[in-house]
Design a binder for these strands. Structure first.
Lengths: 209, 209
DNA sequence: CATCATACTATACACTAGTGTCGTTTTTAT
DNA sequence: ATAAAAACGACACTAGTGTATAGTATGATG
């Protein structure tokens, strides 16, 4: 099906391939996945796959970009609830995310950034770095906003609190992936985080519970 | 150098090989390391290396065991200082450990437990699981001891506090490995942890600062 | 001192699993 | 009908694995 084909066609085909790749990466991780596996999943030939992606690293990056694009920014919509509620909700949502960790790219992602040839430079421009910074900044801004509106009284710099949260969540995520959620008691740990945050940012709690 | 050789000799030779392997794993991680690399580093032939280890997974496990054996248990020596001081010191020591992360097996270790064929079962008997449990239990016991002696008044279960600490440290460690310590401001994050811990376990602080 | 068991070397080998390329075939818009 | 290009799949190549062989060096033993 293809002569002087539309850009639209190629775009759709590419997304089809990316989704197949995504599925395989979620199932097998990055290291164990070969181009052949993706061909099998997508039911295309070697030549076709290589006409869309140069190599496995490139393929993975495309999957990542696709994934990022789908993700809504948690913190953008400023609604009626307090910032503390917003933060709390966000933290609590992690429980569900982590429970479904087998259906995410966490495993592949960690492997990729540890093992891929593509990732060498730890400089600021790396994709990984950008993602990290983007997330911390979102949290940081929320805390700063809360400080401005007198809702929060942070006891440590908002930047280090933001990074603290992210480090913890990253660790919890990976530990849970490796050990299973029976072992890591995700919910309890998140409760501890929330307690800590309460003390760290000292919100003027409009008690809703 | 070797006829009807002593057990002692073989033991030493094995350690020699393990140390060579360790060096390579630290430099290259697990995934990128081949048996050939270890042969080159240890300056032994293919046959020799394979007479000590069956394959690369086996080799890595031996390195891990060797490493564990060297590690002292942080919490065993009960000295003059308060438990809070002890915990604080332990947390602060992580700064130096994380700063030298390139000289540790963290990278190889994470890769191994994500990627190796050897690791399939996530059951309680797995090596990874044991290590995890061992560390959390050590922290947990310290908190419980402190509770018994009225030094601490934990605001959450000692178990979930212990796991919280470990998740955070694991996350900080891996993020710092991947992004560099300029980005993750290790010291600040550890300060945040200490602040949180103070609120979490509520120690009767015998102020030393 | 001669000898013999054996740790070790060095290299060849058969095998596996992947890579990226490229000439050929198929498809379909015009 | 035709030509552009999408899709195919054989191919040459690379990098590793684990085994096997013949030969060398060495130290304990009679």
């Amino acid at each position: 099906m293809a002569p002087i084909v539309s850009e639209e066609y190629k775009r759709k085909k590419k997304i089809e391939l990316i989704e197949a790749a995504r599925k395989v990466f979620i199932e097998q991780g990055f290291v164990r996945t070969s181009m052949q596996d993706i061909m099998d999943e997508a039911e295309v030939s070697r030549g076709t796959l290589y006409s869309y992606f140069n190599n496995i690293d490139h393929t993975f990056i495309e999957v990542l970009k696709y994934e990022d694009q789908k993700n809504i920014d948690y913190f953008i919509p400023s609604s009626e609830i307090t910032l503390w509620e917003k933060l709390k909700n966000w933290v609590e949502e992690w429980q569900f995310y982590i429970e479904k960790i087998d259906q995410t790219l966490v495993h592949a992602n960690t492997e990729f950034f540890l093992s891929s040839d593509y990732v060498k430079s730890k400089d600021d421009s790396s994709y990984l770095s950008k993602r990290y910074v983007r997330t911390t900044e979102a949290i940081e801004k929320l805390i700063e906003e809360g400080t401005r509106t007198k809702e929060f009284k942070p006891q440590q710099s908002s930047r280090s609190i933001a990074m603290f949260i992210l480090s913890f969540l990253n660790g919890l995520m990976l530990d849970t992936y490796q050990l299973g959620d029976e072992q890591t008691i995700v919910k309890d740990q998140l409760t501890v985080l929330l307690y800590s945050l309460e003390k760290l940012i000292n919100p003027t709690i409009i008690n809703k519970e």
